[in-house]
Design a binder for these strands. Structure first.
Lengths: 187, 187
DNA sequence: ACCTGAACACCGTTCAAGT
DNA sequence: ACCTGAACACCGTTCAAGT
């Protein structure tokens, strides 16, 4: 963890910023490393000095919004509605997070359980947030006993991936989330 | 629909056969068009003469097993178990179909609703099969009113894509399918 | 230390030249 | 009609050369 030179820090941040904008507008596949380098005004080599692969760069580019996901779980749970409503509120904000960058939902959901993935840290954050939700609702006896965080991450992540890919309306997304919620709540 | 010359027919079939084997062993991304051409003993140009894109070749390679999917729906429904068991039987065989070729589940599920996709015909087949299941179970009053075939295809296809990608055990797959089933059945 | 950009290996796809 | 395979455009990634 040695400190970076000031110019290197500046480069690293500008690269991540530019990459965030480009990935957000166009999606992962439609952005090339050359394009990021040119937009950031650096050589490709500098990209690879700071980020060993394109996926690592992507991970850095979408870092900021992941850090608020745990807070989002608490917000969703804080309401005084029925368990079903609070669970749906969480699902919807989870999907909203995952679809904020095109291509992220599938990429991150695919990385669940893969410790070697560049997204491993994000997966842990998501698993924790879902565990939080499960604990809270289970304490009220609202959930079936055999639901676990990994399963929820995969189910909701799968819905998010489909929603993202097919650019579905929120109504279609919510209908699918309602199915998952009803399948997970005690009947 | 003019008839092909005998040698062209032979080439087309051998290409599709070889491609099926290669795709099945390695998955879509890990097989290059050059590899298919070389394995089939033809030039790349011949590949493109018969199949305009790699996706079209893939579509042809995985054709055979799709044609039995409607029969599988009827088989699953034919049992005399509870609606939940028959629905699960269908889900499980649906996932088994979609995961038979690595990478197919996500590719096909992504193509749902896209008429221009090379997989459009397969999507229609899948939608029909799911509609068949919905009709049969709805006639018994076992389903919620607002379930439609597209939604089921997306939900179960999403599960299949995750199962395929993470190479999950059948037990994990079935647990997720149970959630979807319970979310879709009348409570 | 850090940066640059030509070069590499590998894609999917095209097309002029052959039979 | 059909086939061949060199060539093209475009990737992600590397590395020798510069400051």
């Amino acid at each position: 963890m040695k400190p970076l030179r000031a110019d290197a820090v500046r480069n690293r941040e500008r690269i991540a910023d530019i990459a965030r904008q480009l990935f957000r507008e166009k999606g992962y596949d439609a952005v090339s490393m050359d394009e990021v380098a040119k937009s950031a005004g650096v050589g490709v080599g500098t990209l690879y000095r700071h980020f060993p692969t394109k996926e690592a760069l992507y991970d850095a580019a979408i870092q900021a919004w992941v850090e608020t996901v745990t807070a989002a779980a608490d917000t969703a749970l804080a309401g005084d509605g029925a368990p079903r409503d609070r669970l749906l509120a969480w699902f919807e904000s989870y999907v909203e997070f995952l679809t904020r960058h095109k291509g992220a939902a599938w990429r991150i959901t695919s990385a669940l359980g893969d410790e070697g993935s560049p997204f491993a840290a994000k997966c842990r954050t998501y698993l924790n947030a879902n565990q939080r939700v499960i604990d809270a609702l289970a304490a009220e006896g609202a959930l079936r006993g055999d639901v676990d965080a990994m399963q929820l991450c995969r189910l909701v992540g799968g819905v998010a991936a489909v929603v993202d890919n097919s650019e579905l309306e929120p109504a279609a997304a919510n209908a699918m989330l309602a199915v998952v919620a009803d399948g997970v709540l005690a009947s």
